[in-house]
Every structure is written in structure tokens, then in C-alpha cells.
Design a protein around this nucleic acid. Structure first.
Ligand code: ATP
Length: 1071
DNA sequence: TAGGATCGGACCGTT
DNA sequence: TCCGATCCTA
């Protein structure tokens, strides 16, 4: 018999699907559509499988139908086909996310199963690998090939299909995380693949450009996330009605005929062609190639679409269907067709009524679209519709391809026609008699693939990066000429303020850092100042590095940027000390400092922390040991001197003392650093301020500082925004600038964050933006899981045809293209662990920063002490370290080690003294070695970087990984989408410390800093329970969130509660 | 005297 | 939960 089958759908257990995806509705909608066999979807989900077993009964071999008692009796809706006619076949889709050949792969695969037993076997096999109960389409860290193997082991009769093969992010051949051939994906088991799913984003002619796909049957399914979407693509069979007949027919074996597929127009997809939506540039692959991928309007690389990917893999110069291939039918869903004719929405009443009428008359939607004789239809239907159907059936459509997030448009009439039609009813001659051939293979590929392939071969080397995401650096390079062009008027004024002291105070994202960087370049290039006389001070090495990189691009020669000093306060201080003081000293960290107080100076354990903090305070306020009258401080300082050590605070305070005492040295340094620029001025402390004041004495030095008092978040280390007004007092001649335009945050983000701090001027945002999401969660675990899923889902929004509007809550997130667009911010680095686990479970690549630097923790910490000693074998304190670590007095070995190059030395030390620590677990050692690789053997440089470094220094902005950062570490960064986890009273504001009192205002600013990292999407999560200090605590939502205006908030309601398995034993079984 | 087991306290942010 | 200090054993 002839019948239609839709074999890829989802159940209500899948994420972002309609609650109506239950057997009863599937049965009903399949009949409305005219589908005989519908896939069950999601058989990997225990809850769904249970539901299927409960509601279905066996029909033909391998097929099932709704049990009598679940069939609705008297139905208010029209029931065109006899109830119970729909057949179910067991199907599932699995999202495989894994690394292969060094790249992240995300491939979706379909499995058909012949019976419940097989489905259960597959289910229990997959339960070993990952969580199959949390999503109807489970995400498994499993190679596609291995999934195929597992399925085959469960039953030889399973049927396995690579799903929607061209979807860029989630498919076997996808541009972003797929392969270049089916074989590359499934390896030795490729022979078990008989069919591939073309998906909504491609149709048979596109696939036929790829001869390597000829051997597969091209099938098409709806991938429906709601019952109404059933059959938007489907398969036509002529064979027996059974599982075996269907799968054997797909294998091309005797007995059945595959009559082809019903297709969506792939041109309608948002990323079919290439181009730039904003610049209104839409290109086919050939045009893109001819232009080397560069947009003629803005000069950036265009966004590349699916067609381009197909063209890239094409091995044929034409799109002719090879002989013997089944036909296909490109259709427009009836409601959309009606919607065009009636010029009202597809969900409108008018359209729905007309739709029901037609279904009643003809029996099903497919009858209308495919078979029903038009002359017969014209008796009951509007002539316009008949003409529309005629045109659609014969492929006479007007289409414009989608590109760069813009949907394509498929129309059967043009505007003029529609307008004239609405005024006159009878326009058309009676419907033209259509012929059989009109159905066959309408090709709408409108560029020359042969020419593309020729050109591509010619340009191959240049084209390799075409698909790569735009490179920021190239962009900057292009824009810097002329230097001031990328600045607004306020910013320019600040740059061009030529001499004398000045400050900018302005809010987040107003371009303060950009102004500072541009100013340096401007001073050198336009004002011809010597770079060696310019000093720029930042707070982190990362900020310094970023600024150096920017300047390297902006300046003409590498010599110029080399001559500049861009550094942190601490590195600057250390440099000054080294310059002036002969003896080489070693810098110790906080841990070492406390160890000294405890072990060497007999400070009682319970006092160590407090005493250490007191000493820090003395130093940060420039109170010397004598003046302090503090005995322990005095003996501590004596110890440091005797052992040739500096602690962190010495790096600021000592240079101040030194410069005060040596006027000639001071003069020399002032002469050198004639112009000083300071970023993040709100986070400066007394000692740092005094150092600056010494280097740039009032009244009129060329000192330029920028900051934002609302972003002051380092009060705990003595910093205070009070130094901003203090600066104004000490330098009365200073000019004050401010900036009002935020180039980062949307208006909603700005408003909400402004609500939180309630101070400072309200900035102007670039766009209105979208609402802020507040998502309550039940536990810290589910919070982490929520974040991982949300990221997946938002990136998934990039998937073509996220037409099911439920998927993205009406918020399109198509500009989220890379994992690097996401950041998750936390108050404490402890919170990171669970989130990291969730990322690992979902195979989401991430980078963390904010936790203590790996190199400051054992065993690397001790290893580095040994390394330091080999570099300074006469150092008294390091000598002690060696003796206690190695277990004997230093010997000739020290010299031998010292003679080795850096990396070998590290390896050797590890092998000699840390063999056990690194036994089998060399990842930390490797990290150290890799870091060492950046220093081309300069041991001292390396050691300084290790000592003064922090984990944020290793942050790589363009690495396509989610950033997991503490709020502190996120300062100065920006992301399209920001999550702030743990917005709970007690955590943010933090109030769990016994020692230091809570500073609510600083905590508030911390949240402000976090929120203003977001360009567009901001998601604040909090959980009712949290595991802290070994105990599970009840948490309330952070009171800070209460200040945010209600209309800016989108309160997230969990959709998971619909899964009843949550509170029963199920989770334990699979979690 | 090295290295494992046990115990108890911290409890955040960083150069 | 985790880390370090201390205790304990071979
Ligand atoms: N005139 C401008 N035109 C377009 N974009 C700009 C302009 N000025 C700055 N930007 C962009 O705005 C963003 C924020 O700039 P920047 O990091 O310099 O701000 P900031 O004031 O230092 O922020 P924060 O206070 O959060 O550190 C950056 O992406 C920057 O490239």
C-alpha cells in the first residue's frame, strides 16, 4: 500500500517541546495531516517508553496503535480518518557530543527499533553512559560510531540514520562540528548506514551535488516539537505496512518502493545563503567566493550558510538527479499558504477555519497539498487557493533565500497580484490541468555549482578561513585609521586633552579602556611622544597584556610598542626595587607569609590570619615597622630582610619608601615616566596612590586616570574609590571627563544594573535589548545543570529553523554564535566545581578563572621553589626550602639542574623529586610546561610571571569556550550572554565569613560589575538549597534583585516539573 | 622518616 | 567539601 511516514519527532519529555506531544494527540494530528506511520520519538526516555507501553498496543509487525480506551470517543474536532488508524513506530534521537580528531563534534542520530524489547535494551545500555532521563533527546558523550555499535549490539534489526545532516551545529556533515563525509563520522560501521535525513535545511537537489551521498536513501522528517508541525517533511512509501517492510524499503531491497519525500523549502531557512543582515547583503556561495567572503558594506566576513557548506563538500558540477532516484515534493504548509492568501497570520481564526473546512472536505492536509484534483477543489475552495496550490505543486514559487538570521520567503503570489486579487474576485482562468511531471524535482538552486568548484580550487588556500568566525584583531586593524575615527565626541575630547592631569569617571562599557589605549597611540603617533616615556598601569596582567596587544596593532612599529611600559602596579614596584637594589630577592605569597609568622616567628596559630592582615594594613597605609610599634611586624620585616624576601605588599610600599629616601633616583624615574595613565583607578589603595603621587607630583603632571566608583570591588585589600575625589583635591587643575554612551550593554541591562546600585548617571544603551531572566532553582546542582542546558539551548537557537517558537521563548538568540559569547560568573570559586561538572557532563568546553592559580598550589608550588633555588643557589630562604623538600643539603646537583634550559629543568625536577605526585597524573605538570613554553627559556621572567600571576591572566577571549569566572575576575570583560549564579542572600551579598565584616555596598557593586558584563542576555540564577562548608543550607533570593524593576524581569519557571520522574526513584536509577 | 589515615576547622574576593 | 595539620605505623 501507499502511505506517508514521519519518523523523527519528539515527545513532551524533550526540552522545549509542546505538552501536547502525547500519543493521543499524535494519533489525532497524524490523521489530520494524512500520515499513516509516525515515529514515537524519544524511546530512550524511561518515562516516555512507559507511557508508550501503557497507551499503545501491537498492530502490524513492529508497529503499534493507540489502545481503544485512549481513543477519544466523541470528538469535538473533525476526525477525518477512522480513529486508531495511525501507526506508531519506535524511534529516538540522540545528541552525541564528543571529541574526534581533535575537534568538538556534535552529531544527532536517529535510531529506529523493531520492538519494545530492543528499545529497552538500548535504553539500559545508554543509561550506563549518561543521563537519559532528563531529556527526551539525551545528550551523550559518546562517539556516533560507538552509538551505532551499541544499537547494533542490542539488535541487528535496528535502523540507524544520521539526522538532519547539514545542520551546522548538530550533524554529521555540519559546518561547525560535523565531518566531511559519512565515513569519517561512522568509521568501520559506515556500511550499516543506509539512509540519511536531509532535514529542513536541505532538499534532495542540494544533496545531489554530493555524489558521495548517492548510495543513501534521502529521507525527510518533521523533527516536530509540537503536534501541529507533524509532517512538515515526510516520506512516501509503497510497501507493506510493517517495520520490516519500511526498513527494508529504505535499504533499497526488493518488495517495496520508496516513492520519495515531502520537503520544506530549505531556502526559507534563516541561514541558507551567506551574507550580512544589517548590511542587506545576501549572497549565494559563488558570490561569497568571488568576494573572498568579505562584505562590501562593512568589510567584515559574511555569515556563511548551509548552502555554502554543501557546495564546499560537493563533488559534482550539477544538481541533476541521478537516474532511479525517487522524486520529491516541495510543499508549503497549508496554513502558511492560507495565511498568504488571506493576508493574516497562520494562527488566525480566518486561516484556522478555512483549514478545517479543507480537511473536512478532503480528509487530510496532505490530500490538499499533494493529491486532490484541483478542478474538484475549485468547486469547494476559493479559486485563489486553487491557483496557489497549482503553482506550488508545479514549483512556480517566488522565493528569496534566507541569510544571516533573516528568514527566507516563499510565496506563490507576488504583492501586486494579491492586491489586485483582493479587489476583484475572479481573476484567474479556471485552474490549469497539472501533469504528473509537475511534481518532479523542482530545483531552486540558483547558482552555478560548477563555477563555484572551479573558483574554489583556484582560491583554495585563501578560502580556508572563510567559515571561521570574524577575527576581532583584523577588525581593529582596519578601523584604527584614522586613529580617532572609532571614537565618539566625548571620547575624542578625553584623548585630545594633551597635557596636565585629567580623569575620566564613567560607567561600564563607555569605552574608558578604549580611550586610554587610543590616547597612548595618539600620543605616540600624532603627538610624536617617545614611547619609552609613557607608563600605563593596570591591575591585572591580563589587562596589561590586552592593552599591549591592542597597542601593537595600533602602533606602526614593534619597536614602539616594545619601548612602552604597560604593566601592573606590582610588577612596576618590583621593577623599581630590582633596578635600585643589588641583591636579588624572592617574592612570597600570602601562604608563605603566614607560614613564616607561624613557624619562624612563633605567632600562635589562631592569631596568624589576623596578624598577617594587620601587617598588610600597615604596609598598605605606608606605616613602617618602627612607626607601627608592632613587634611582630618588626620581627617579620627583619626576617624578610635577612632572608632576602618581599611579600606582595612590599612591592608597593618599599618602592615608595625607597623613592622618598633617594631624591636622585626619584628624579630619574620621573624623568623616565613623564606620562602616566592608570586604568581601574577606583580600585587603588593608599600605597598605590602615594606611589603615583610620587611619580607624578602635583600640581601639573601628565597623569591620566580612569575609573568608575560604582565598580569599586577591592575594598578588602585596602582599595577605595575615595581616591577619585582625593585625586581631584590633590590635583586641582585636573580636567574631569565623563562618557555617557555605553557601547556594551543594552538598555535593559543598564536599567536593571542601575536599579541595583542606584547611583551614578544612567547611561545610554545601544539597543533596547531583551528582558533579564531570573531563574530560581531548587539546588545548586540543578542550577549548574540549568546553566549548561540553557547555554546549549541558546546556541541551539542558531540551529536553522528554530521555527518552533516555543524553543526560544520568543527571544531569538541567533547572534550567539560561539561558546565564547557566554560567561558564567560566580561569587566564590567554590561554586565553580558544580558548574564545571555540568559543563563536563554536557561536553561544553569552558575555561575557568578566578580560582587560585594552579602554580600556587601543591605540588607545583614546591616544584617552583626548587626551580627558584636552582636559579638563585645562594638564596638563604630557598636553601631552606630545598633542604626540607629534598631531604638533604644542596649538592652539586643544584648547579647541574641550574645549567639546564627551563623546560628540561622543570621536567628533571619533577622526575627527581615529585615522581609520585605526578605519577599517572601529569596534567598539572604539563600545564606548567606549556606555560613555560611562552617564555623562550627566560627563567627569571617565567618565575616572575608565575609569582605575580593570577588565573585570569590565562584567559583567552577568542577560544570558543564558555568563560567561568569569579565576579572579580570578570572585571573589564564583556560577553553577549552572562549568567550570574548564586544570587542568594548570604552568598551575594556574601555574609558567611566569621572574620571580616560584610560590606553590603561593595557586594552590591560586585553584582553591578557582573551584570554590566552582559551585552544582551543576562540570566540571574539562585537556588533554594546550597551546599556550603559541608552543609546543605537554605537560601533566600538575594535582596539585591528586589530592586530591579518588575517589567525588566522575565521570571523563569521550570519546565522540568512536568516530568513526574523527578521525585520518584527514577533519578536515583539513572542519576 | 616517609607516607597514609584521621581529624578538625574554614568558611570570599587578589596582586 | 576540601585542605592542611597531626597522629600513627612500618
Ligand atoms: N566609540 C565607540 N564605538 C563603538 N564601540 C565602542 C566605542 N567605544 C568603546 N566601544 C566598545 O565598547 C565596549 C566597552 O569598551 P571598554 O571596555 O573600553 O569600556 P570600559 O568603559 O572600559 O568598560 P568597563 O568599565 O566595564 O571596564 C568595547 O567592546 C569597545 O570596543
Amino acid at each position: 500500500m501507499k502511505f506517508i511516514a514521519d519518523l523523527h519527532i519528539h515527545s513532551h519529555y524533550s526540552i522545549a517541546t509542546s505538552k501536547q506531544l502525547i500519543p493521543e494527540y499524535l494519533d489525532y494530528w497524524a490523521r489530520i495531516k494524512g500520515i499513516t506511520v509516525v515515529g514515537s520519538g524519544d524511546f530512550t526516555h524511561p518515562g516516555w517508553l512507559k507511557e508508550l507501553k501503557e497507551k499503545l498496543e501491537p498492530a502490524e509487525e513492529g508497529l503499534f496503535r493507540l489502545k481503544e480506551q485512549f481513543r477519544p470517543q466523541a470528538h469535538s474536532l473533525p476526525l477525518p480518518a477512522p480513529t486508531g488508524q495511525t501507526r506508531f513506530m519506535l524511534t529516538a534521537e540522540i545528541s552525541n557530543i564528543y571529541k574526534k580528531d581533535g575537534r568538538l563534534r556534535k552529531v544527532h542520530n536517529l535510531i529506529f527499533a523493531p520492538d519494545f524489547e530492543t528499545a529497552e535494551k538500548i535504553q539500559s545500555a545508554l543509561a550506563q553512559i549518561g543521563n537519559i532521563a532528563s531529556d527526551g533527546r539525551p545528550i551523550l558523550g559518546l562517539d556516533s560510531r560507538d552509538l551505532l555499535e551499541i544499537a547494533l549490539n542490542c539488535s541487528e534489526r535496528i535502523f540507524f540514520v544520521p539526522a538532519h545532516i547539514w545542520t551546522p551545529w548538530f550533524s554529521a556533515l555540519g559546518a561547525k562540528s560535523g565531518f566531511d563525509s559519512i565515513e569519517a563520522c561512522y568509521g568501520d560501521l559506515s556500511d550499516h548506514i543506509y539512509a540519511v535525513e536531509t532535514g529542513l535545511s536541505s532538499d534532495p537537489p542540494m544533496n545531489r551535488m554530493c555524489g558521495f551521498l548517492d548510495k543513501y536513501t534521502l529521507i525527510s522528517n518533521s523533527d516536530a516539537h509540537s503536534p501541529e508541525k507533524l509532517g512538515r517533511e515526510a516520506n512516501l512509501f509503497e510497501c507493506g505496512l510493517s517495520y520490516s517492510d519500511i526498513t527494508e524499503t529504505l535499504k533499497g531491497r526488493d518488495g517495496g518502493r520508496f516513492l520519495g519525500t515531502v520537503e520544506f523549502f530549505p531556502q526559507e531557512g534563516k541561514y541558507h545563503y551567506d551574507g550580512h543582515r544589517k548590511c542587506k547583503v545576501c549572497w549565494d556561495p559563488l558570490q561569497t567566493l568571488q568576494n573572498d567572503g568579505r562584505c562590501p558594506v562593512c568589510g567584515k566576513m559574511v555569515t556563511v550558510g548551509v548552502m555554502h557548506r554543501v557546495a564546499r563538500l560537493a563533488d559534482r558540477d550539477h544538481t541533476e538527479m541521478p537516474d532511479g532516484q525517487p522524486p520529491f515534493y516541495s510543499l508549503i504548509p497549508l496554513k502558511e499558504l492560507l495565511s498568504e492568501l488571506y493576508r493574516s497570520g497562520p494562527a488566525s481564526k480566518k486561516v484556522s477555519e478555512a483549514y478545517l473546512q479543507l480537511i473536512k472536505k478532503t480528509g487530510s492536509e496532505f490530500n490538499v497539498l499533494l493529491h486532490w484534483p484541483l478542478d474538484e477543489l475549485s468547486r469547494v475552495a476559493n479559486e485563489l487557493l486553487v491557483e496557489g496550490l497549482r503553482r506550488m505543486r508545479s514549483g512556480q514559487v517566488r522565493l528569496s533565500e534566507g541569510y544571516d538570521g533573516e528568514f527566507g520567503r516563499i510565496r506563490v503570489f507576488d504583492e501586486k497580484e494579491l492586491r489586485s486579487i483582493s479587489s476583484q474576485t475572479k481573476l484567474f482562468a479556471p485552474a490549469v490541468k497539472e501533469t504528473e511531471t509537475a511534481y518532479n524535482g523542482m530545483r531552486h538552486i540558483r547558482f552555478d555549482i560548477a563555477e563555484y568548484r572551479r573558483l574554489f580550487e583556484r582560491k583554495r588556500p585563501k578560502q580556508l578561513d572563510l567559515v571561521e568566525v570574524l577575527n576581532e584583531k583584523k577588525e581593529a586593524q582596519r578601523k584604527t585609521h584614522p586613529l580617532l575615527a572609532p571614537l565618539n565626541r566625548e571620547q575624542r575630547a578625553a584623548v585630545e586633552y594633551e597635557s596636565g592631569p585629567a580623569r575620566i569617571t564613567a560607567g561600564p562599557g563607555t569605552g574608558k579602556t578604549r580611550v586610554l589605549t587610543t590616547k597612548i597611540a595618539w600620543l605616540i603617533k600624532v603627538k610624536k611622544q617617545e614611547p619609552c616615556h609613557i607608563l600605563a598601569v593596570t591591575f591585572t596582567n591580563r589587562a596589561a597584556r590586552e592593552m599591549r596587544e591592542r597597542l601593537q596593532i595600533m602602533l606602526d612599529s614593534p619597536e614602539q610598542s616594545q619601548a612602552l611600559t604597560v604593566t601592573t602596579f606590582h610588577a612596576l614596584g618590583f621593577r623599581l626595587l630590582q633596578e635600585r637594589i643589588e641583591e636579588t630577592r624572592v617574592i612570597i605569597d600570602e601562604t608563605e607569609k603566614q607560614r613564616i609568622l607561624l613557624r619562624e616567628l612563633d605567632c600562635p596559630v589562631e592569631e596568624v590570619k589576623e596578624q598577617a592582615a594587620r601587617i598588610t594594613r600597615f604596609k598598605q597605609t605606608l606605616t613602617g615597622p618602627e612607626k607601627s610599634g608592632h613587634a611582630l611586624y618588626q620581627s617579620y620585616q627583619r626576617f624578610l630582610d635577612a632572608q632576602r624576601l618581599y611579600d606582595m605588599d612590599d612591592l608597593i610600599s618599599r618602592p615608595v619608601f625607597m623613592l622618598r629616601e633617594s631624591p636622585d633616583f626619584l628624579e630619574q624615574i620621573r624623568e623616565r615616566y613623564r606620562r602616566i595613565l592608570v586604568d581601574e583607578f577606583q580600585d587603588i589603595n593608599e600605597a598605590q596612590y602615594q606611589l603615583l603621587r610620587l611619580l607624578a607630583p602635583p600640581p601639573r603632571p601628565d597623569l591620566f586616570v580612569i575609573g568608575d566608583p560604582n565598580q569599586a570591588i577591592y575594598g578588602f585589600r585596602g582599595a577605595s574609590a575615595q581616591f577619585i575625589p582625593r585625586f581631584a583635591e590633590d590635583y586641582p587643575q585636573a580636567a574631569a571627563f565623563t562618557l555617557h554612551q555605553s557601547y556594551r550593554c543594552s538598555q535593559s541591562v543598564l536599567r536593571a544594573s542601575h536599579n541595583v546600585v542606584a547611583s551614578g548617571p544612567m547611561l545610554k544603551g545601544l539597543q533596547e535589548g531583551v528582558k533579564i531572566t531570573i531563574a530560581p532553582q531548587s539546588s545548586d546542582k540543578s542550577e549548574a545543570e540549568f546553566i549548561a542546558r540553557r547555554i546549549e539551548q541558546m546556541l541551539g537557537g542558531v540551529r536553522f529553523f528554530s521555527i518552533d517558537s516555543e524553543v526560544s521563548d520568543g527571544q531569538s538568540s541567533e547572534e550567539l554564535q560561539s561558546l565564547g559569547d557566554f560567561a558564567v560568573l560566580v561569587r566564590t570559586s567554590r561554586q565553580m566545581r558544580l558548574i564545571e561538572k555540568a559543563f563536563a557532563d554536557h561536553s561544553i568546553p569552558w575555561q575557568s578563572a578566578g580560582d587560585e592559580l594552579l602554580f600556587h598550589k601543591e605540588p607545583l608550588r614546591s616544584l617552583l621553589d626548587i626551580l627558584r633555588f636552582t636559579d638563585q643557589p645562594d638564596h638563604p630562604y630557598l636553601r631552606k626550602k630545598w633542604t626540607s623538600l629534598v631531604g638533604q643539603e644542596p649538592s652539586a646537583m643544584v648547579g647541574e639542574l641550574g645549567a639546564l634550559p627551563l623546560k628540561e629543568r622543570i621536567t628533571r625536577i619533577a622526575a627527581l623529586f615529585f615522581a609520585r605526585e605526578f605519577d599517572g597524573k601529569t596534567d598539572r605538570l604539563e600545564a606548567l610546561l606549556q606555560f613555560a613554553g611562552d617564555f623562550s627559556g627566560d627563567v627569571k621572567e617565567f618565575l616572575q610571571a608565575v609569582t605575580l600571576g593570577s588565573s585570569i591572566d590565562a584567559y583567552q577571549p577568542d577560544s570558543d569556550r564558555v568563560a567561568l569566572l569569579t565576579l572579580h575576575a570578570a572585571k573589564g570583560l564583556e560577553f553577549k550572554c552572562v549568567f550570574i549564579a548564586g544570587c542568594e542572600d548570604g552568598l551575594l551579598p556574601y555574609a558567611l565569613s566569621g572574620t571580616s565584616p560584610a560590606d553590603t555596598e561593595e557586594e552590591r557593586r560586585l553584582l553591578y560589575v557582573g551584570m554590566t558584563r552582559a551585552q544582551k542576555y543576562l540570566i540571574l540564577t539562585h537556588s533554594r538549597r546550597r551546599f556550603l562548608m559541608g552543609r546543605s543550607l537554605r537560601m533566600r533570593r538575594s535582596p539585591f534583585l528586589d530592586a530591579i524593576e518588575k517589567e525588566l524581569i522575565d521570571l523563569y519557571k521550570s519546565t522540568y516539573t512536568k516530568s513526574p520522574s523527578k521525585d520518584t526513584g527514577q533519578l536515583n536509577l539513572f542519576g
